[in-house]
Write a protein that binds this DNA or RNA. Sequence first.
DNA 1: CAACAGTACTGGACAGTCTAGTTTTATGCA
DNA 2: TGCATAAAACTAGACTGTCCAGTACTGTTG
Lengths: 217, 217
Amino acid sequence: MTEVATAQKADGPRSTRKRQAILAAATEVFLKSGYLGTNMDEIAALSEVSKQTVYKHFASKEALFIEIVTSMTGAAGDSVHDQAPEFDESGDLATYLHDYAERQLIVVLTPRLMQLRRLVIGEVSRFPELAKVLYERGPQRAMTALATIFERLAERDLLTIDDPMVAASHFNWLIMSTPVNQAMLLGDSAIPSPEELRRHAADGVRVFLAAYGKQQS
Amino acid sequence: MTEVATAQKADGPRSTRKRQAILAAATEVFLKSGYLGTNMDEIAALSEVSKQTVYKHFASKEALFIEIVTSMTGAAGDSVHDQAPEFDESGDLATYLHDYAERQLIVVLTPRLMQLRRLVIGEVSRFPELAKVLYERGPQRAMTALATIFERLAERDLLTIDDPMVAASHFNWLIMSTPVNQAMLLGDSAIPSPEELRRHAADGVRVFLAAYGKQQS
DNA sequence: CAACAGTACTGGACAGTCTAGTTTTATGCA
DNA sequence: TGCATAAAACTAGACTGTCCAGTACTGTTG
């Protein structure tokens, strides 16, 4: 245990630490002020680094922005999907879907992620590639994963599914639409509480199962 | 017929014409470049008006922006709702809902409205009120109207509905989510064709009726 | 010696104002 | 009605003050 991964700071050579500090500060500032609203002096000040050093690590404001958005997007996408269990035969399908939905909601409905989404949407015309990446690593990825799950459940005769991708889309948006769209326009304060999310997930799952489930309970 | 309402230009006194020209130009520029990315000289040039005149009509860039977004938001909201017929007893409920969905999709999925939505979302932290207005006159209004319709249909025993607002939300997002979210992040070129929208509407209505309809066909 | 801090600097953009001269519209009078 | 004239709105463009991305320079530190 000579090497400690104590997270946060004091890690690696100075250059690397500075780089991390810049990335962290830039993330805050960009999320807070948008691309055009951000100035590089503020990033330098917040990361306690000279402006020169910022430009040593990143060629331009644009490069720094792309770096940050790309990395946040990837990280967020991963954290949603690295913990999805398979359906246990003995359990209840509704419960399984409900848990799946709730997990998804909790991870996605984070102020930072909502702010990232607003930021990227607002910059679609300036950075179309970033938005495309966010779409692919966000909704697209979630729905593809769901489609695979649904396909298996259909093979096991637990669901009646025509087009798995359509079903996945329906499930995904039944769950995510309301809170995401509210958060987009009404701000982070409109993000529902965990209890509200649970109720909301239950409603969505009920509708989904009415359309795609086997027996009507 | 001494007074001709020949639309577009040459209408009313000069001052009014100029004002309209400024509003039209500003709308284009703001939609294209965003709030911070827009400069007032470009608006003046595009509207073929001097900068002075712009400032005679609007106190500031901010005031002009608010004016434009508010008016576009209102107009769009109206055009969605001023043409919603009631359900004709003799017709098919699925067809009625399908038509309703299709109308909504066609009106909302316009490049200008999608761009407006991106713009407002990107400026949530700077103009939270504008975003709130867009939410209320957009999704909120649509869902309230739907809830009323569903309540009547439930009274007529054509639907089985617990909470009309929840049902309205489910219907609304089953229909709107996929295309709207795609358009948000993938750009206007991702807006589906009318045929695709029709198919998409059919899928959404099918799921909705499975959950809220009376007989399972 | 390479990466850093601190800070001054360059060059350009841009919101909003100012000035001086022109055009439109409103008003009053014959 | 028609015409003069004043008030209001307009044009063109220069100008102020500020902000900011990116650079340059002079030391200082790991």
